[in-house]
């Protein structure tokens, strides 16, 4: 359950930037290739943020799409899984998006 320690990093990163101010919202972007499950982060967030200025904050996760570009046929396509294969059969692909694991912004009162 690596999401637990990643959520701990999230809380620390936010506290570093907000000091003791009350945090009312946290916005994340998590891609399908990041290796992190958004639902598991949601589950951990309430536990980890308890007794911190983030307690009760609304967690919003933008679950971005995995996209790749094929260097053979130049097509851009949606990645359905971790196997980086273009529908044309080529494995020579470049991941355009989907690896994001970011805290994009926070809202403080």
């Amino acid at each position: 359950m690596h999401e637990l320690s990643i959520t701990q990093s999230l809380v620390e990163a936010v506290l570093d930037r907000t000091g003791g101010r009350s945090v009312t919202g946290v916005n994340l972007r998590i891609g399908p290739l990041s290796g992190v499950l958004p639902d598991a982060v949601r589950f951990c967030f309430d536990v980890v943020s308890a007794d911190t200025p983030l307690a009760g904050a609304t967690l919003t996760i933008d679950e971005s799409e995995g996209r790749a570009r094929c260097r053979s046929c130049r097509d851009e396509f949606v990645l359905e899984d971790m196997f980086l294969l273009c529908p044309c059969g080529s494995a020579d692909v470049e991941v355009v998006s989907g690896r994001e694991l970011l805290v994009t912004s926070v809202e403080v009162a």
């Binding site: 990643i6 990093s9 999230l10 620390e12 990163a13 936010v14 930037r17 907000t18 009312t24 919202g25 994340l28 992190v36 694991l101 970011l102 805290v103 994009t104 912004s105 926070v106 809202e107 403080v108 009162a109």
Partner: peptide, 19 residues
Amino acid sequence: PAADGRTLISLEENLLAKN
């Protein structure tokens, strides 16, 4: 600053940045 007095702080920080 948001309309209700709350402030949005942009971070754009990787969650694994510290590690």
